[in-house]
Amino acid sequence: MSATILVIDDEQPIRRLLRNTLERAGYRVVEAMNAGDALQVFRAERPSAVLLDLGLPDRDGLEMVPLLRKAGEVVILVISARDETDQKVAALDLGADDYVTKPFDTEELLARLRVALRHRSLSSVAPKIVRRGDLEIDFDERTVRRGGEDLHLTRKEHDVLTVLARNIGRVVTHDRILAAAWSREEDPRIEYLRIVVRNLRGKLEAPGPVGSVIANELGVGYRLLADG
């Protein structure tokens, strides 16, 4: 049975574009054009994912994120013309799984949606090992291998990588990483995180483009890229 996707956007052309894109990819689509209708449709349809615009006519879309998160297990992908960094951080910290800025590439949107749906389905079983290309991250053993060879990581490098690997394919905000990896320090600073990520890249990434494993979401956070 195909997953149901709820599209919440007050612009009819955007809803039409998203419906056509999603239905071609095999999803079932339901729509709402404002927050009030969206909550009713959500309760009736119990979608697997929500594509949420922030500029709704009756309520700020940011307020919808915790309401939807509280209502049930669902992927929340924000799609908005708001490209300010603070808006992206706020949406992610409130519980959104990802943030795509309008105008968007439909293939990238589908890829982000697939990753978020896959992550949501896997999160309930708490995988012990995450594999990405020739990287293997074993959470229980606290080991990291590339091409079968053990990599030596410092405790901080491992803590940061663990946060990213448990959210593979999704952007994790600076504050979330700092809270997880520097939980015992009184004054965690983003400068420390940047140093750790730079060192991680040097150890994890084979020769190639910068960001081929860990991508920088400027001003927002970092993303451990999923395969494909």
Results as ranks from 00 to 15, higher is better:
206 A>K: 12
123 S>F: 00
22 L>M: 14
162 T>C: 05
70 K>G: 08
83 D>E: 14
31 E>Y: 01
174 H>I: 15
95 G>Y: 04
3 A>S: 13
196 V>I: 15
116 A>Y: 03
184 R>I: 06
79 I>H: 07
16 R>A: 12
190 I>C: 00
131 R>F: 01
171 V>D: 06
188 P>A: 07
152 H>D: 11
219 G>T: 08
166 R>M: 13
134 D>I: 01
99 Y>D: 02
192 Y>E: 13
208 G>Q: 13
227 D>Y: 03
200 L>V: 00
181 A>W: 03
14 I>P: 00
91 A>Y: 12
45 E>S: 15
55 G>P: 02
67 L>I: 13
203 K>G: 10
60 D>T: 00
75 V>C: 10
101 T>A: 14
205 E>W: 02
82 R>V: 10
79 I>D: 08
48 S>W: 08
43 R>P: 00
24 R>F: 02
105 D>V: 14
109 L>S: 01
132 R>V: 12
161 L>I: 05
227 D>V: 10
150 D>L: 15
114 R>I: 02
16 R>C: 02
80 S>N: 12
162 T>N: 06
86 D>R: 13
217 E>Q: 14
164 L>N: 08
133 G>S: 06
18 L>E: 00
212 S>F: 01
142 R>K: 15
71 A>P: 00
6 L>E: 04
45 E>I: 02
154 T>L: 11
199 N>L: 07
134 D>K: 07
192 Y>Q: 14
61 G>P: 10
105 D>M: 10
218 L>V: 14
87 Q>H: 10
56 L>G: 12
104 F>T: 05
111 A>E: 02
103 P>W: 13
219 G>M: 07
131 R>N: 12
148 G>S: 08
5 I>M: 02
224 L>M: 12
123 S>M: 08
57 P>Y: 06
32 A>I: 04
92 L>P: 06
137 I>R: 06
94 L>S: 12
192 Y>R: 14
226 A>C: 01
168 I>K: 05
186 E>A: 11
228 G>P: 02
217 E>M: 09
84 E>P: 00
70 K>L: 05
206 A>V: 02
65 V>R: 02
41 V>I: 14
45 E>G: 03
25 A>G: 03
123 S>Y: 00
55 G>H: 12
130 V>S: 05
47 P>C: 05
221 G>N: 10
215 A>Q: 15
57 P>D: 06
163 V>S: 13
78 V>K: 09
161 L>G: 07
146 R>G: 11
203 K>V: 09
13 P>M: 04
202 G>C: 01
27 Y>M: 10
28 R>M: 03
9 D>G: 07
158 H>Q: 12
226 A>F: 04
95 G>M: 03
211 G>V: 07
221 G>T: 08
170 R>C: 11
60 D>Q: 09
186 E>Y: 03
32 A>Q: 08
192 Y>W: 13
201 R>W: 01
197 V>Q: 07
196 V>W: 05
120 R>E: 08
48 S>A: 15
90 A>G: 04
46 R>K: 15
162 T>V: 05
112 R>Y: 05
169 G>V: 03
214 I>T: 06
20 N>M: 11
111 A>R: 10
211 G>P: 06
222 Y>A: 04
191 E>H: 08
77 L>C: 09
87 Q>A: 14
88 K>N: 01
143 T>P: 04
222 Y>S: 02
69 R>K: 14
45 E>V: 13
52 L>D: 02
